[in-house]
Design a binder for these strands. Structure first.
Lengths: 193, 193
DNA sequence: AATCTTACTTACTAGTAGGTAAGTACGTCA
DNA sequence: TGACGTACTTACCTACTAGTAAGTAAGATT
C-alpha cells in the first residue's frame, strides 16, 4: 500500500476532474494539456506522466464517466420505484449535469465524434449502448407492469428518450436555461403515460 | 458588373461550401484554414483575403445557413399544407442534412458554443430563435385549426421539437443511422396528434 | 547503505494554428 | 496609356499544439 500520496487527492484523479469539466464545457478539441495542467498547477509533462497521450486521457475520461453513470443507474434500480419514476430519475441525472452548466460528456464527444481516435469512438458507443439497454429494460418492465406504454420497440423508444435529453441539454445550455430540459422531460414522460 | 471571375464559381462561395461541410462533420474547432484551402486548391492567404479571420468565416457560415433555412421555411409555408404536414416537412429538412452524413451546422456549433467568438454566438442564438418562432406560429395555427394540439405554450412545444430533432441527429450520426431521426420524428408527430 | 520506484520538473522538439506583409497577374476604367 | 481594384501567391511570423528526453527529490524496498 502506497501512502504519502493520495493524502489530499491523487493528481491523476484531479486531472480527470479538471479535464472532464473543461471538455463538458468546451469540447475535447477545445481543451489542451496546457489548460488542464494550468488549472492543476503542475507542468504538462506531469500530465503526460499520468496520461501518455491525449487519446489516453480521453479514453480514461469516458470510461470513468460511464462507470459513474452505471452506478447511478444501479442506484435507481435499487430504489424500488416504478418504471415511470425510474425514467424520471434518469432524466434527473441529465438535469443535474446541466445545472452545473455542463453538457453530457458523451453528448459533447458525440458532436466531435469524427475527429476522435478510434478507442474514444468505441468508448462513446459503449456509453450510449449501456444507456439504451438500461432504458429498454425499464421501458419493458413498465409496459409489462402496465405503468407505462410506448409505441414501437422498447429499444427505439429508449433511443428517442436519449436523443431528446441530449438535444434538450445541447440547446438549453445555449440559453443557460435548465427549464428547457425540464419541459422536454415532462413531455417525454407524458408521451409514455 | 464584374465578369471574368464567377465563371465557374466564386472562391468565397466555394470556400463557404467546403467549410460548411467540414464544420458540420468535424466542428468549428476541428477545421483549420489549411483544411479549407487545401480542398479548394488555393493558399491559406487567399482564404484570408475573402475572410480576414476565422471568426468572420464562421459568422458568414452561420448567416448563409440561416438564410437558406429561412428560405426552406418560407417554401414550406407556401405549400398550402396543414400544420402537421408542415412540422413533418420541417423534420424533413433535418433528415436531408443527416442523410448527407452531416450534423445541423448550428447544432454542431451549439456544442462548441463556449469556445466561439461573441458574434458567432449571437448568430447561433438568432438561428434557433428563427426556428422557434416559425414552429411556434405553425403550432398555434394547427391548434386553432384543430389539426394538432400541444401541452403548455406553443413556444415551449417548439423548443421541444427543435431539441428532439437536434438530439436525434447528434446520436443518429454516431451510428450512421438516419432511421433514428425518422423514429424520433414519428414520435414527435404522434405526440402532437 | 544502496537501489528502485513514483511523481514529478526543466528544457526541448516538430508540427500546426491563425494571421500578415509584400509582391504579382490581370481585367476595368478614366 | 496609365492608374486602380480584384484576386490572388510566396514567404514569413508568433503562439500554441501534443509529445519527449533527461534529470531530480523523496519515499519504499533490499
Amino acid at each position: 500500500m502506497k501512502l504519502g500520496q493520495t493524502v489530499v487527492a491523487d493528481t491523476a484523479e484531479r486531472a480527470l476532474d479538471v479535464a472532464e469539466q473543461l471538455v463538458q464545457v468546451r469540447g475535447f478539441n477545445g481543451v489542451s494539456y496546457a489548460d488542464v495542467a494550468g488549472e492543476l498547477d503542475v507542468t504538462k509533462a506531469a500530465l503526460h506522466y499520468h496520461f501518455a497521450t491525449k487519446a489516453e486521457l480521453g479514453e480514461a475520461l469516458i470510461n470513468r464517466y460511464t462507470t459513474r453513470f452505471e452506478a447511478a443507474l444501479e442506484s435507481i434500480d435499487e430504489g424500488g420505484i416504478d418504471a415511470p419514476s425510474k425514467i424520471s430519475a434518469y432524466a434527473g441525472i441529465y438535469l443535474d449535469v446541466l445545472r452545473q452548466q455542463r453538457m453530457c460528456l458523451c453528448g459533447m464527444l458525440a458532436a466531435e465524434y469524427q475527429t476522435l481516435p478510434l478507442p474514444m469512438q468505441q468508448a462513446i458507443l459503449r456509453f450510449f449502448d449501456i444507456n439504451e439497454t438500461w432504458l429498454e429494460r425499464v421501458l419493458n418492465e413498465g409496459q409489462h407492469a402496465g405503468t407505462l406504454r410506448h409505441r414501437g420497440s422498447a429499444r427505439s423508444a429508449a433511443q428517442v428518450v436519449i436523443s431528446t435529453l441530449e438535444g434538450a441539454m445541447l440547446v438549453a445550455r445555449l440559453h443557460d436555461d435548465p427549464n428547457r430540459l425540464e419541459v422536454a422531460t415532462k413531455q417525454l414522460l407524458a408521451e409514455l403515460d
